[in-house]
């Protein structure tokens, strides 16, 4: 999708991820409705942010968008397939293929090198070790860390660790990268660098979705979804797209 395309005009076939009337209720005795009848479509090429205060339901939404959780009601579609009807193995496969994750706490595996961490995302995909290695190296080079592929997380700075996490997320060439507070654990300089990388990574085939409570980060996207009390309260286009 380009910035000039309105949301309504988007065709269905370029939707990579969609929530349809999704609700998520936690608890058994005391019920907490963290997400209430939410619908959202993320299309290829989009750079969007989901913003909202604590408790607004954005983390729940991220879990559902990433197929890490299943809704109490509604459907999650990944490339058109309702994943709530799939078995775990199939759902996991689809998640691995279509979605890349970047977390606030990086979540790198401490005993593996940067290259090993990126390769983890490429396991069980029928790739030869050589192919896996070359794809992981390519991803690390895209975030400017090719030279440090042999370093373990403890030998890298916070900003570098987050870049390794980004390389891991893009190594599988997913349709959408979901980032949870990706700059939350970084200083402003590294945060800017990471946001710049996200901006560079956006392509007509790949959507970037950042979940944040930081308005500055949220405003760096082209589309901003605002949440409150488990519902989407605003869905706006920013920058060049805002005028359309």
């Amino acid at each position: 999708m380009t910035d000039s395309t309105s949301l309504e005009e988007a065709t269905e076939d370029n939707g990579v991820l969609a929530l349809e009337g999704v609700s998520r209720v936690y608890g058994t005795e005391v019920l907490v409705r963290a997400l209430d009848d939410v619908s959202l479509e993320i299309r290829a090429g989009e750079f969007l942010s989901i913003v909202g205060p604590s408790g607004s339901g954005k983390s729940t939404m991220l879990g559902l968008l990433g197929v890490l959780d299943l809704p109490t009601e509604g459907a999650i579609r990944v490339r058109g397939t309702d994943v709530t009807r799939l078995a775990d193995a199939e759902r996991s496969r689809l998640r691995g293929e279509a979605i890349g994750f970047v977390f606030q706490q990086f979540h790198l595996i401490p005993h593996l090198t940067a290259l090993g961490n990126v390769e983890t995302a490429l396991l069980y995909r029928g790739l030869s070790p050589r192919e896996r290695r070359s794809r992981a190296m390519y991803a690390l080079e895209q975030v400017d860390l090719g030279a440090r592929h042999n370093h373990r997380p403890v030998q890298l700075s916070g900003g570098e660790q987050q870049r390794v996490a980004i390389a891991r997320a893009i190594s599988t060439d997913p349709g959408v990268v979901l980032a949870d507070e990706p700059t939350g654990a970084l200083d402003s300089q590294n945060a800017e660098k990471v946001l710049q990388i996200f901006d560079d990574l956006q392509s007509p085939e790949r959507a970037i979705c950042i979940v944040t409570h930081d308005l500055h980060v949220a405003d760096s996207a082209r589309r901003k979804i605002s949440m409150l009390d488990g519902q989407i309260v605003a869905d706006e286009l920013l920058g060049a797209g805002a005028g359309s």
């Binding site: 990433g66 890490l68 775990d88 193995a89 996991s92 496969r93 689809l94 998640r95 691995g96 293929e97 994750f101 977390f103 979540h107 790198l108 595996i109 983890t120 995302a121 396991l123 069980y124 891991r168 599988t172």
Partner: peptide, 16 residues
């Protein structure tokens, strides 16, 4: 558990 969580997020199934 964090490693398991990240592997699951990366597409590794329960079986894997």
């Amino acid at each position: 558990s964090s490693e398991i969580g990240i592997r699951r997020a990366l597409g590794h199934s329960r079986g894997t």
